[in-house]
């Protein structure tokens, strides 16, 4: 049937662990980009300029309905055609950050819409500028209801990093593939990658739920 070789598994473990570092780094960096860009997209969709709102809305829809894999290829290969050379890491981060910023913008949008209308009116009544209004009144109140969605996409981005392997980012799947073709053994590397993913994403999902509860309590939201 099958022969799981423990010595082989032990031998490749250090390489997989260091690749896990790369995976986490990619997920973290991509998420940081998505958090910032997503907020910008969410606010742009609420701007009074109809043209801007329309363009951003359609852009978000477009990115959300097309495969991330294709977007990664697009960014990696199209740049050089116009003389812009991006490293695999760079294009990977841009692609994944951009893709998830569109998802996060929807989460933020939901959060912003959940802020009661009176708060907006009060901010106007206090003669706040648009920046002050968002920074000091709206966003602090929008974040708590957006928290669970934000957490889900952190785990989601982590699970999508394997797609970066196609342009040569040395994350888990890329490393498992390399090990597999060096030794002609795919059972151990791919199974271990699966277990590593489970071992990180399941506790992460639990931790995020805990953190969410804590932030809510801290903000006095029960």
């Amino acid at each position: 049937m099958f022969d799981w070789k423990w010595e082989f598994a032990w031998e490749i473990l250090p390489r997989l662990v260091s690749a896990t570092g790369n995976t986490l780094l990619a997920a973290g960096a991509g998420y940081a980009i998505a958090l910032v860009l997503g907020l910008a997209l969410a606010i742009a969709q609420r701007s009074p300029y109809r043209g801007l709102t329309f363009v951003v809305r359609e852009f978000v829809e477009f990115i959300r309905s097309t495969p991330l894999l294709l977007q990664i290829f697009f960014i990696f290969y199209v740049g050089p055609q116009f003389g812009i050379r991006l490293s695999p890491w760079m294009s990977g981060m841009i692609a994944i950050g951009l893709h998830y910023s569109c998802y996060l913008s929807e989460v933020y949008r939901g959060g912003i819409e959940s802020v009661p209308k009176g708060q907006w009116e009060a901010a106007i009544a206090l003669n706040m500028t648009t920046v002050q209004k968002y920074r000091r009144v709206i966003i602090p109140q929008a974040i708590p209801s957006a928290l669970s969605g934000m957490g889900n996409y952190l785990v989601g981005i982590f699970k999508d990093t394997p797609m970066l392997s196609v342009i040569g980012v040395a994350e888990l799947i890329h490393t498992a593939n390399a090990i597999g073709s060096e030794h002609y053994r795919f059972l151990e590397p791919f199974t271990m990658v699966g277990i590593i993913f489970l071992a990180i994403s399941l506790p992460a999902a639990g931790l995020i739920r805990l953190a969410e509860g804590r932030v809510r309590r801290k903000l006095g939201l029960k």
């Binding site: 999508d160 990093t161 394997p162 597999g180 791919f190 699966g194 993913f197």
Partner: peptide, 13 residues
């Protein structure tokens, strides 16, 4: 808990 790509490779390889 795991990626679609991991599942796909696992099923195929």
């Amino acid at each position: 808990g795991t990626s679609l790509l991991v599942q796909l490779y696992w099923i195929f390889f």
